[in-house]
Design a protein around this nucleic acid. Structure first.
Lengths: 148, 148
DNA sequence: CTCTATTTTGTAACCATTACAACTTTAAAA
DNA sequence: TTTTAAAGTTGTAATGGTTACAAAATAGAG
């Protein structure tokens, strides 16, 4: 669950997604987007950089930051807002929620816990584009560890 | 809505809450907790500091940080996790959701959009303590501004 | 092939947050 | 009271994630 992978996303598909979003499919962009589509482990910028750098020795961390911003703006990637944590990213685009262990900080995917569509707050003058549901608590590992 | 206030919370009441949480009701703690209970505007650390500093010239920003952490741990205050923003705080404790304008960054309170209690993820080994629902979009002001 | 816009890179700066040690205040005991 | 120890506050310095910026590299158009 945590280290779920999805190797099905080919470079061709990634390239198509970038082009569709009006972005040039550079090596770096393909690498960053690919990393997020192949690992659903909600990595930090640093994690992404560390995974890619060995294969791309000239890669700059600034590029990872820039690329992630571009990908987020294009909607190809989500950024998660997690208490007491660095920014984290998610290449998993189908609607789903997150569980954050307040003990170890790990992030788990959850099925989207919402029966209906996005609620409307038009009466308040608010146009809702996106919803983010996060649960906080203890994962099994941390509960077991604490029990001992 | 945005600058909603609640002057009904007296110092005596704030003091009682602190003591009940096992915290000494120091001047600084009363001030920080009071600020968050009197303004429901989801301030940043800096905003809180700026509001209190004029009346408390010796107040240190470190104290504001320390105090907020202590208050959060005690459950007297919530911290919000908002995309592309500094940490923000909320002294409004009844369950409610938030709307964040992706244009101006303002945070609006919403009624809690959840019919049932916290869902259970026991089957996944996850013990849920807390839920956070955030909506992102455009507020009326920013929509109007963009329309022009 | 040349030119120009786009993208990437590395360094330096920025700024929110935390570590730490000194100082102050408080509460309780003597 | 006075003393004493614990709790709380303060300011400075360090940390570390993120961004600004300018130079270098790259890619697509003509």
């Amino acid at each position: 669950m945590q280290t779920q992978q999805n190797k099905d996303v080919t470079t061709v598909e990634l390239s198509r997604r970038l082009l569709e979003a009006g972005l040039r499919p550079s090596v770096q962009r393909l690498a960053v987007l690919g990393d997020l589509c192949h690992h659903y482990d909600h990595p930090t910028v640093d994690t992404i950089y560390s995974r890619l750098q060995p294969q791309m020795p000239t890669l700059s961390k600034t590029t990872v930051y820039n690329t992630l911003r571009v990908l987020c703006d294009a909607g190809l990637v989500r950024s998660l807002n997690i208490e007491y944590a660095n920014q984290r990213f998610d290449g998993h685009l189908e609607p789903h929620d997150h569980f954050i262990c307040t003990c170890c900080g790990r992030v788990y995917d959850l099925p989207h816990n919402r029966t209906a569509d996005l609620p409307s707050f038009e009466d308040l003058g608010l146009q809702v584009d996106r919803e983010e549901i996060s649960y906080y608590g203890f994962c099994r590992e941390c509960r077991d560890k604490q029990a001992r």
